[in-house]
Write a protein that binds this DNA or RNA. Structure first.
Lengths: 231, 231
DNA sequence: GCCCATTTAAGTGTCGACAATATTGGCCTG
DNA sequence: CAGGCCAATATTGTCGACACTTAAATGGGC
């Protein structure tokens, strides 16, 4: 299901021997991101523990990780609450993305393998077809955009960058998209921008790649600003 | 009946380190950053727990936070190891810093208050004096540089940015500085670059501020590259 | 009826113990 | 003597229980 499933670094050998806390963390993260556990609500440790049939200790470890990813906030002796989404915070996230993904694009233009670039071209072409078929309403804004960005980030080969974006920021962003119902309405433009960016990467032009990625994200941010001000 | 639980918090002047896990986390983080717990070494939960007179549960929560800050790596059923510092990873950190702090400088040029800017000018002037007095060997490279960057980041007013830089990256960087003995030898140049950057902020020129910050960090990275290649 | 102190309940922080998994050392076999 | 299988040990994962803090409820005085 999830395209950027959380598979911490060692994504090879054993996929079953995951610890209980890990599974619990994944479950809770998905529940929070998709709004199943409402934003801003308090988290009762005994209740959640019973509900998932785990010990409070394990649950607390999972909550700790959620806190590290800024999905919940915890105050001593007061408990944890799911983070409350605000307009300002969303803008902040876009600013951080602009900086980090801009750098990712720069590095990707230098470090992506020829095969990775080819695969990305194929992926982009598929996106184009889907937009034509569905007039850009369904798939693209939902998962395709993240897909494309995800590959660019991976292509940077910078583990620090990859960790920050794929582990910390993307889940927060996904949470906003779910709960604010952010359908983009500009799939065609986004597709074009992806195309230009990919061309810069094909040309191995880091400067241009960073520039285009930053413009792309800025443009996306402005779109969000407009959309939220309409409500 | 009562077991001696309460320990009147002797060692540090922490104002509000309420929970035990918090104190333990601070202690361990410092120990790791300063190399007291060697880089790459395995962390034995029973031993550390006994050594610090805490339960294994509390220790595990602290380790979990250290893992979130990428100071330790943990593999299921195998335990945690202090992260091993590598040349490549340090370069990666500098690339991330270039992106994030560049954005921070851009935002700081827009969002810093006049008073914050004045204070920063005072701080920079002090740095200048210290460089003259000590020929730039002691204080500046050690804390002054981080001090300056810290204020710029705060001045961005972007909480996401502040969190990423001051919580996640800052300690990793400090760890490298400690263990690689990174004395800069270019305090004068760094001071000049700080000066130019601050001028851009005074002029409220975001574009220029970001450009100068990125050049400053790139220059710092190249210096590190030279230094490490000499060994 | 309202306010404040005190008691009561609920929730979080911390601990020690048990179960599952990995590592060490010894023993047997070739 | 080497190498691999197996028991014994140590370490990690998980659990339930107790201590302390905060929130809620109760009751008495005005």
């Amino acid at each position: 299901m999830g395209i950027m499933q959380n598979q911490p670094a060692t994504n090879s050998t054993d996929s079953v021997s995951i610890t209980l806390t890990d599974r619990l963390f994944d479950t809770l993260q998905r529940a929070i991101v998709e709004g199943e556990i409402p934003s801003g609500s308090k988290i009762s440790e005994p209740e959640l523990a019973r509900q998932h049939s785990v010990s409070r200790g394990s649950l607390r470890e999972a909550i700790g990780r959620l806190e590290a990813r800024k999905l919940v906030e915890r105050k001593p002796n007061l408990g944890a609450r799911v983070v409350t989404l605000s307009y300002e915070q969303l803008i902040e996230i876009y600013q951080v993305r602009e900086a980090l993904e801009g750098m990712a694009a720069r590095l990707a233009a230098q470090n992506m393998s020829e095969k990775e670039i080819e695969d990305l071209q194929v992926l982009l072409k598929e996106h184009g077809h889907e937009i034509e078929e569905q007039h850009g309403q369904a798939y693209f804004q939902k998962q395709g955009d993240l897909d494309f960005h995800y590959r660019i980030v991976q292509g940077s080969k910078n583990q620090q960058l990859i960790g920050l974006l794929c582990n910390d920021l993307y889940h927060l962003l996904r949470m906003y998209r779910f709960q604010f119902g952010m359908r983009s309405k500009r799939s065609q433009q986004a597709y074009d921008e992806h195309h230009y960016l990919l061309n810069a990467i094909v040309s191995r032009d880091p400067e241009m790649a960073e520039l285009l990625m930053r413009q792309h994200i800025r443009s996306s941010r402005r779109n969000v600003e407009r959309m939220l001000l309409e409500n």
